[in-house]
Write a protein that binds this DNA or RNA. Structure first.
Lengths: 203, 203
DNA sequence: AAATACACTGTATTTATGATCAGTCTATGA
DNA sequence: TCATAGACTGATCATAAATACAGTGTATTT
């Protein structure tokens, strides 16, 4: 598929949202209004461009005759990361075990991937061995958030606390030690923030 | 919701299929043709009846302005039960808050619905207040399984243990008491077995 | 026996909507 | 500097589609 211009992406996103919200696609006039335009013809040309590029299908003469291609189902599938090889970023093609469909209506925050938990270091936060963490991929995190962090070879999930040049990765289990990172001496890469937990096995 | 006439169900089913197939709702004329009728006005009245009965919503003056309510037909979607009214079975139309798409590839066991947890009585099992339980609807449960149980007016989630004529509903939190049920004197209805947990909010 | 709901036909009217034509303005690459 | 594509305005047109009104006939309920 040919690349979309930013305007075309904007319009495509509006159609997607309208469809989700209303249950049917918008009319040309509705898109025109939403984009702050004054004539529906500009929109029409954009839609024809989107159709040429394979993003949508236009049904001639039909009101609201816009059909989204590129199945939505694929958009809603999250990659499941099983085991992370030492020294490599978490979200890597090679780590993907399978894809899981998860409707976005469940989580407030956008989710990017699932990560299987190893060990009981976050037990008291209700995160158990084998649980799947729902992770938003980001390098920014606030104090108190549960993060996926990487230090050289090791990937760990802990509560983040940063004070001046020191970072503390705190477990939620008294049997485990707090990991102290001197940011001046050691690298600490934030790979993502935990936005949800899924447990698929009980007992 | 008032019962639908067979004609109304037929029309509703057509709208559902059309929507699935085409990506947008049909016009009155399209329904008219599909039903083998000759005037759109008959269809219009049926749609208004469907709207009165709460099966659809009609958006005035909008082309294809039909919105399906009760979207039971959503594939791979599980109903989310928020609050359970006293003295009523858990899995009831009235309790459904919304539908959540969850691919079946996540859980080994078949899941029937999601139930929002209230309280911390299962904290040590990694089930926290506000979590969503993935529940398989069944009346049979084994010792040690976490079950959704109902005793008259109250619905509770606990670990089940049955010994002879006594049932014990054990919390996973020392602050809560074990509920003892004498099966000879009291009713205990098993509504389902917990097969998974989903946490959508962290911290 | 009358009232009411269901399930329509048939014609007409209005408005919503897609389609078309004639242009403008701005980049960007040949 | 010419050509070309993107991103529009503005007016007009044709028709798709919802709405309205006046009826018909058959069940069900009261």
């Amino acid at each position: 598929m040919k690349p979309l211009t930013s305007r075309q992406q904007e319009i495509l996103e509006f159609i997607r949202q309208f469809l989700e919200q209303e249950g049917f696609p918008p009319t040309l006039a509705e898109i025109t209004r939403a984009m702050g335009l004054k004539s529906p013809h500009g929109v029409r040309e954009q839609l024809q461009a989107l159709a040429r590029k394979g993003a949508i299908e236009l049904i001639p003469s039909a009101s609201r005759g816009i059909r989204l291609l590129n199945k939505v189902a694929e958009r809603d599938a999250l990659p499941l990361i099983g085991k992370v090889a030492a020294g490599r970023p978490v979200m890597t093609e090679a780590h993907i075990e399978k894809y899981c469909r998860l409707g976005p209506e469940l989580f407030q925050n956008k989710a990017d991937y699932l990560l299987r938990v190893q060990g009981m270091s976050m037990r008291d936060a209700g995160i158990l061995d084998g649980d799947l963490l729902v992770v938003r991929q980001t390098t920014e995190a606030r104090n108190g958030q549960i993060v996926v962090a990487r230090m050289q070879d090791e990937v760990t999930v802990k509560t983040l606390r940063v004070e001046e040049a020191m970072a503390y990765l705190e477990p939620a289990n008294p049997d485990f030690p707090i990991i102290v990172v001197d940011l001046a001496k050691q690298d600490l890469a934030i790979e993502g923030v935990v936005v949800g937990v899924i447990r698929t096995r009980i007992g």
